[in-house]
Write a protein that binds this DNA or RNA. Structure first.
Length: 758
DNA sequence: GTAGGGTTAG
């Protein structure tokens, strides 16, 4: 045994050399050699199974063997193995020494609190490292005041004690205390400074972080990485890349962590050229890449639009794939709208975590598949008991409910949030504001807004857009005033919202004043102004504004003019606008329909016919409209000509009855076309979609008498059905609320709340 | 044996 040489082992660079030694020598009951070999396994990153076999080869491991094995597990982050092995240690009757506790405390995480008493009993608290570990545990997991108490009780402190305390304060958001300790600390080291950089980065104060970075005397690669990741995680991609270049020219060798940060900044920029140059550098330097770097690269390729390269990395990673790798690939697919590929991966993925579910839910929600988003959320809470939805999940779900106008579902989701004590941040509350606005409940939307302790620009924009959809111009104007008073700078969305609100309430003076106040109005703001002028009947001014625009008008500009021309029956301008639209977007059927509706509303059926023929020649297909009603927590969807709904027969029967009833009260059914035969698809197609009639009938069938009827539809409420809803509201004696893409129309007693058809 | 830096989802 004597020729097994400790110095020789410490020079080994490869596991195979170690392996040869182990085979040559019988290691039974030789704890010294076992401990030594395990410590080299740690150094050489040996596989856990291999290392454990060495440990197991001794019948009675002593405290050194245990310590080194624990160290090995701790080093690779196998915390459950540390905990189990510590259990073995206690059972085997070996007395743990002071060396064991810091390792074990770290792996126990917040449960290490149970070890505190243990330590006191064994008297190990006199050991400075054990003391530091206990204090660090309280600093990390709280209560932070316990950590401070231990800190104050220390007669002499190591730098590590100060550093643990400082980063503990940062972790608990106590900037002032962290800073105070920093100034009090007698001998600050590189770790102290790095902790300050990270602290300020995490509260998004990059300027101060950079101040500390520039001021520190001695920097190592970790300090550079701290600054770099501060930039990259807060969206300062330019700064990150600049700092990285500086790092290279300062001759600091980047490590894997560096690459991860830089690559992720490059992903954010989505710049393929930059991506290529980074990959070139990686190849030149011939660096070892771990799975973090690979995943970052995968994400970078995906965000730069190279899905094949991303998938190639994914495939090549094979057994080295982890949950993050899978998630990155899944969202790569959802990002481009390839939900099928995303779903395929998702279904195959082992060990899904909350991010996997969130990616899939958000993927559906952002690609217009709100119903699917909610379905998969239901599946999530049904089949995975160990994965809890978090705020991100709920933001997607709530926003999906908003898009659907599904109030019952939205309330259910909110109840879920409360019952599961999910904390909401600003964006969580913003999604609630969005949902209630979209569901027509502005009171609740406002209540949530007022309840929020902090707002951001999006909070204001969401509520303003809600007011706009409800035609509440005054509230929108009040809100932009409050916004400025609170010190928020309105952005382009804010102005679009307020202008739209003015437009929907006919506030021409206020709108014009606001338009003047926009620092750099863009094409969308011009479109809003054209819409506003059009709605108040100043169509010629609208056309003049278009001619004066400093940029090329887009479809929205002419669309507004066309719509106004239709309402005001200005054939000349309508035809002008329509012709421009046909040039810009020849395949958009909506424009043809608008034009033909204009003709129809003036009884010019010949022209209607002409447009219809033109559509056929060009090959434009009218997109089918759908409407739905939320009933009993379920969404009931209706499409013209589709009779698959279970109550279909009753619905059509009711439609006939209503038609009779109308004749009795004196409406000309054919003229008003309210209940025109839905089988007449050709005419149906020309004058607009009437799926909402089916939806209304369903709602009449299932809802209580006297209650209001709420419908969501995916196309603009057209002239025809607008009239139909007015009449129906009178006939039925109740409110009908229709939400088309972003407008609310409240029909009551034969009138509509909106200003479209004055 | 202690303290500081990393990839994915809204």
């Amino acid at each position: 045994m004597s020729h097994l040489n400790a110095t020789a082992i410490s020079r080994f660079k490869h596991l195979t050399q170690l392996h040869a030694q182990i085979i040559q020598h019988s290691l039974h009951n030789h704890n010294y050699w076992v401990s030594l070999l395990i410590s080299h396994c740690t150094r050489l990153r040996a596989p856990p199974i291999y290392t454990r076999r060495i440990f197991n080869s001794t019948d009675q491991p002593n405290v050194y063997a245990f310590t080194n094995m624990l160290k090995f597990y701790s080093h690779i982050g196998a915390h459950t193995d540390v905990i189990t092995l510590f259990g073995c240690l206690q059972i085997s009757g070996v007395t743990p020494d002071a060396f064991v506790f810091p390792i074990v405390i770290k792996s126990f995480g917040k449960d290490a609190i149970v070890l505190h008493g243990h330590v006191l009993k064994t008297g190990h608290q006199s050991d400075r490292y054990v003391r530091n570990a206990i204090m660090g545990m309280y600093a990390k997991y709280g209560p932070i005041c316990f950590a401070r108490k231990l800190f104050d009780e220390m007669s002499e402190r190591m730098a590590a004690d100060w550093n643990s305390m400082i980063s503990g304060y940062w972790r608990w958001g106590k900037r002032v205390e962290a800073h105070k300790l920093f100034t009090l600390m007698p001998e600050r080291n590189v770790i102290t400074w790095t902790a300050m950089i990270t602290g300020y980065s995490n509260i998004q104060d990059l300027a101060t972080a950079r101040m500390y970075f520039d001021e520190m005397q001695e920097k190592n690669v970790v300090s550079w990485n701290a600054m770099l990741s501060g930039y990259s995680q807060n969206g300062f991609a330019e700064e990150a890349i600049e700092l990285f270049n500086k790092m290279i020219s300062s001759n600091v060798q980047p490590d894997e962590t560096t690459w991860v940060s830089v690559i992720s900044s490059c992903s954010e920029r989505a710049d393929p050229n930059l991506a290529n140059s980074l990959v070139k550098m990686l190849n030149e330097k011939n660096v070892r890449l771990n799975s973090f770097v690979h995943t970052a690269l995968l994400d970078m390729y995906a965000k730069c639009g190279n899905l094949e390269a991303a998938r190639k990395i994914f495939n090549e990673l094979g057994a080295f794939r982890n949950a993050v790798t899978w998630n990155a690939m899944i969202s790569a697919y959802t990002r481009v709208g390839d939900l099928n590929s995303a779903r395929q991966l998702f279904d195959k993925m082992p060990g899904k975590n909350v991010v996997s579910w969130n990616s899939m839910i958000a993927g559906y929600a952002q690609n217009g598949q709100s119903t699917m988003a909610i379905d998969i959320f239901k599946e999530m809470i049904k089949c995975s008991t160990n994965i809890k939805p978090d705020e991100v999940t709920m933001v997607s779900v709530i926003s999906a409910c908003g898009h659907l106008g599904a109030l019952e579902l939205g309330n259910w989701a909110l109840k879920f949030i409360n019952e599961n004590q999910i904390n909401l941040s600003i964006s969580g509350y913003n999604s609630l504001i969005f949902m209630y606005s979209k569901c027509g409940n502005m009171k609740e939307a406002q209540r949530i807004f007022n309840k929020m302790k902090q707002h951001d620009v999006i909070s204001f924009n969401t509520l303003i857009t809600g007011f706009a959809a409800h035609g509440d111009g005054f509230s929108a104007i009040d809100l932009i005033k409050k916004m400025k008073k609170d010190g928020f700078q309105p952005d382009r969305i804010t102005y679009i919202g307020v202008l739209t609100a003015c437009s929907h309430s006919g506030l021409i003076k206020e709108g014009e004043k606001l338009f003047e106040s926009i620092p750099t109005p863009d094409v969308d703001h011009y479109a809003c102004m054209v819409d506003l002028l059009g709605r108040v009947g100043k169509l010629d001014e609208a056309k003049k504004l278009i001619e004066k625009m400093p940029m090329a008008p887009h479809a929205g500009v002419y669309g507004s003019l066309l719509n106004a021309s239709r309402i005001r029956k200005r054939i000349d301008l309508g035809e002008f606008a329509a012709n421009e639209l046909f040039k810009i977007e020849p395949q958009n059927s909506g424009n043809y329909v608008l034009l033909s509706n204009m003709y129809a509303s003036m009884g010019k059926w010949g022209n209607v016919e002409r447009v219809r023929k033109e559509m056929k020649v060009i090959g434009v297909k009218k997109t089918t409209g759908w409407s739905f009603v939320e009933y009993n927590g379920k969404l009931h969807k209706f499409i013209v000509g589709d009779k698959s709904h279970e109550r279909s027969d009753d619905i059509y029967k009711l439609l006939m009855e209503l038609r009779k009833k109308m004749r009795v009260v004196g409406y000309n059914v054919d003229k008003e076309s309210v209940l025109r035969d839905v089988e007449d698809e050709e005419k149906e197609e020309m004058v607009g979609t009437h799926s909402e009639k089916l939806a209304v009938c369903f709602a009449i069938l299932v809802s209580e008498k006297g209650s209001s009827i709420r419908i969501v539809k995916n196309l603009r409420v057209c002239w025809d059905c607008h009239e139909a809803m007015k009449i129906l509201s009178k006939l039925e004696g109740r409110e009908i609320i229709v939400r088309d893409n972003n407008r609310f129309h409240l029909f009551r007693d034969g009138l509509c709340s909106c200003n479209d058809y004055w």
